[in-house]
Design a protein around this nucleic acid. Structure first.
Lengths: 184, 184
DNA sequence: CCGTCGTGCTTCGAAGTTGAAGCAATTACG
DNA sequence: CGTAATTGCTTCAACTTCGAAGCACGACGG
């Protein structure tokens, strides 16, 4: 058993072994395919994108309204992207945006009944696709391993310091993600 | 085509257990973060996108020139996307496009020396990022498991018949902005 | 109070992706 | 051969995303 060795290679770079290359490629391709299929399903059944689904999911499982910043965390990389998507969702009547009583510069976002209804309508299909494509060929043991491995990787990545200076101060309030968060 | 009938609930959906949910979320978030970091590195060191890197990689490791279709396979989901990217790469002098002697409608794409040089220049950084973010917290055993699991998942997905095989079109309403609040 | 800085969100322009439509070459089939 | 269906690629319009710049509010320090 070897530990998590990460020696710097003799050539200055880190060479990836065949085992690692295979894992890397399979991982990226499989996730890419899964994402694509999930998008198809969400578009077909609910006419929403994966990003919009994630936003609805966050709002549906949150206790109350969220600010734009809280909502964006882990779903999109830019605030402007969230502004755009929130505009679409609001226009569709799935969410509402209103000023915060405390901070008038903040915008509180809440899910509407239509939004919850839509979320409930597409969730089974989402689950079905995920199950059929991802979990069907896996044993319980595999799932356990996968979760353990990817959780460790994710936490490791989160702990990595940003390569460049933070353009703006980050909000260190990591909310327990009850729903899919694509990235931080 | 109806899949496996493992009906576990009255709503016809497959419920995902906590173990599966955790694995799913960690998987998606970790890959998303990894992709983002890789894009940053490629943009910084070589001024190319991840897609462009993948295309160069395919050409660099292929025996000879590839057709557009062969090149697109597994990298982009639309042919037009490849046309666009190939245009950029050709303009940058990294690849060449020419007609095929056999099929005159086909376009053969080959990598130039500049393209190979650029690929060789950014590859170490790519490897380094992948190693640092993905493999550093993993043991050799983990990598083996991950590769095994994801390879099975990928092959399983590849074997899945396209959803558009037989069924007729149901509702071709490609509305993206105005989300229909259709009360089913 | 008042000026300054930091924070929350939006607007704007640039770049990339997709699906549908279109064109040219090839193959299938009488 | 001759016509029709198919294949390979490109063009085009619509949509999405991001980063930089901008606006408005809130927190401090004088």
């Amino acid at each position: 058993m070897s530990g998590p060795h990460h020696d710097t290679g003799p050539d200055g770079g880190q060479a990836l072994g065949p085992q690692q290359l295979g894992a890397y490629f399979a991982l990226m391709e499989a996730v890419s395919m899964l994402q694509h299929q999930v998008e198809q399903q969400l578009r077909t059944e609910g006419d929403i994108s994966y990003v919009q689904f994630q936003l609805l999911a966050r709002l549906a499982t949150a206790d109350g309204p969220l600010t734009m910043t809280q909502l964006a965390d882990g779903v999109v990389y830019s605030r402007s992207g969230l502004t755009y998507q929130a505009g679409l969702l609001e226009k569709a009547g799935l969410i509402t945006r209103g000023p915060s009583p405390d901070d008038e510069r903040a915008t509180l976002v809440a899910i509407t009944e239509d939004g919850q209804a839509l979320f409930g309508r597409v969730l089974p299909g989402h689950t079905e696709v995920t199950h059929r494509l991802l979990f069907e060929p896996l044993t319980d043991d595999d799932v356990h391993h996968l979760g353990d491995i990817m959780t460790r990787v994710r936490d490791h990545m989160r702990a990595q310091p940003p390569r460049s200076a933070a353009p703006r101060k980050r909000r260190p309030s990591p909310v327990s993600s009850p729903l899919p968060s694509a990235q931080a």
